[in-house]
């Protein structure tokens, strides 16, 4: 039971809003110590685990070029493009990206999306611009809601598209696990059984995206007075 202390530390630390990086590091070391290993061995195992996971943050390599393009006006250009498309609303735009992300991920093209490469420089500014074209300058909390939705679409499209591709990590993991248990399955049949969930994901989240337009409109109508108040307090902060 003692090794579960790591889970407790994580839940308590996140709930109490301590810095997550610190919480997770403490939980990792506590888990090792609680499992009865010597401190030096725990630090070694922790160091090795961290070094072995160095490929996880590889997307950050896109930052120099993305930053350079932002400085040259990439976000502004993305806004202009969307503002020129009359039928584009935030919900419809994100629905189109959801479909694109699911379809490309299901073909194994998972690197066609991602938050640093696609969402920050392109999808989020486009989603904001679609709302601004209709309703003018957005109050801060509405703008943040649009951005959060742009990030969420990238995740949902990826998760419920990629499993239809036969050579993706999760399918390989399932096969590997079942092989160890003496059961052989075909990757194509596993991929086939990801299709019903993919359709459900598109219908459920797609519906929510179309409802998002209405909800944003209501929010802006309601917040007419409130938003100018918000911008006053915002100014106070910057001073």
């Amino acid at each position: 039971m003692l090794p579960l202390i790591g889970i407790l530390i994580v839940i308590a630390g996140f709930a109490l809003r301590f810095n997550p990086l610190v919480v997770v590091a403490v939980a990792a070391i506590a888990t090792g110590v609680a499992a009865g290993h010597a401190t030096v061995d725990v630090i070694s195992a922790f160091g090795k685990a961290f070094i072995d996971s160095r490929s996880v943050p590889v997307v950050w390599l896109a930052l120099p070029v993305i930053g350079l393009l932002e400085r040259t006006g990439l976000k502004e250009r993305a806004r202009t493009v969307i503002a020129g498309i009359r039928v584009a609303t935030t919900g419809r735009l994100l629905l189109a990206y959801l479909a694109l992300r699911q379809i490309t991920a299901s073909l194994g093209l998972t690197s066609l999306g991602g938050h640093p490469q696609m969402v920050r420089p392109l999808i989020a500014p486009m989603a904001e611009a679609a709302a601004e074209t209709r309703w003018g300058e957005l109050p801060d909390h509405t703008r943040n809601r649009v951005k959060a939705n742009a990030a969420a679409v990238d995740n949902i499209g990826l998760f419920f598209g990629e499993d239809i591709f036969i050579a993706i990590g999760s399918i390989l993991l399932i096969r590997g696990f079942l092989d160890q248990n003496g059961i052989h399955v075909e990757p194509t049949s596993l991929a086939l059984w990801a299709v019903p969930t993919a359709i459900c994901a598109f219908v459920i989240h797609g519906t929510r995206l179309l409802l998002l337009d209405r909800s944003l409109r209501a929010e802006i109508a309601r917040g007419g007075a409130g938003s100018s108040l918000a911008s006053v307090t915002q100014d106070d902060h910057t001073r």
């Binding site: 090794p3 579960l4 790591g6 889970i7 994580v10 810095n19 997550p20 990086l21 997770v24 590091a25 939980a27 990792a28 070391i29 888990t31 090792g32 609680a34 499992a35 290993h37 195992a45 922790f46 090795k48 685990a49 961290f50 072995d52 996971s53 160095r54 996880v56 943050p57 950050w60 930052l63 993305i66 930053g67 932002e70 640093p116």
Partner: peptide
């Protein structure tokens, strides 16, 4: 500019992967 906007959160996924390895080691 972008990296300092993301700040420590940039390292969090890797740290969580390390935590997962420690969980496995301890039989969680």
């Amino acid at each position: 500019r972008l990296m300092d906007a993301v700040s420590w959160a940039a390292v969090l996924p890797q740290m969580l992967a390390a935590l997962g390895a420690m969980f496995a080691l301890a039989g969680v």
